[in-house]
Design a binder for these strands. Structure first.
Lengths: 111, 111
DNA sequence: GAGTCATATTAGTAGTGACTAATATGATTG
DNA sequence: CAATCATATTAGTCACTACTAATATGACTC
């Protein structure tokens, strides 16, 4: 599974939000995601495996617990691709177009 | 379909690469994608529709032709989400801080 | 207007991936 | 060691989405 496929799942995005703030045990993630998405422990565990396997999350053992932390390296491909695209279109955008884009941007609400 | 789902398809990513460099007629995109992915005109047209509907592409009529150009507004949600995540983990990870700042600078450049 | 070119739409199909239920593993506690 | 807690894995199912084939739309040309 590639980085874009990883990010296309809402449960995985929510999980990344959680572990980007601070390390969380699997059980803590399960609790939040279970409440918000109504899925099982098994489902969450499978998502965590994907995040591990694709370099988006690191795990630390703490007794029986597994503590998940974000691993920025998973985002490398995504960032590179987005930067590449920006590079191309940025060069052809003139000052006026840039102004218009600024207007659109400031209307957007942050999630 | 949300922005992350849009970017999770390789044909759509390739199409965005093409139209980010310069405007392309549908037929030109079909030719490239057909050669690289071995899919039909119909399939490409369906992808183009998705890119239109989700704000990733703008169309201009030129007689019977449809010329596609990139629309940066489709990327707003993705950029916002990634920025939000970076913001959280940036404080923890000093080594990455400079890299992130560079990324933010180039974000500003196109607004 | 008939024919052709360029693109879009529709209906139906197949493969992928997200899910649950059940079970396995492995650490802790009594 | 048995029981329990925390998490991972496996097998099987279902829904979604990307695809093809066929057809529709709409713009040029003769």
């Amino acid at each position: 599974m590639n980085a874009f496929d990883v990010l296309s799942d809402p449960v995985r995005r929510r999980t990344l939000e959680l572990i980007s703030q601070k390390e969380h045990a699997s059980g803590e993630i399960v609790k939040v995601v279970e409440a918000e998405f109504g899925i099982s422990q098994s489902a969450v565990s499978q998502h965590l495996r994907i995040l591990r396997d694709t370099g988006f999350a690191k795990v630390r053992k703490d007794g029986a617990k597994r503590c998940y932390e974000i691993d920025p390296s998973g985002f490398d491909d995504v960032n590179d691709w987005l930067d590449q695209l920006r590079h191309f279109w940025a060069s052809k955008m003139d000052a006026l177009a840039t102004e218009i884009e600024r207007g659109k941007q400031s209307d957007k609400a942050l999630r």
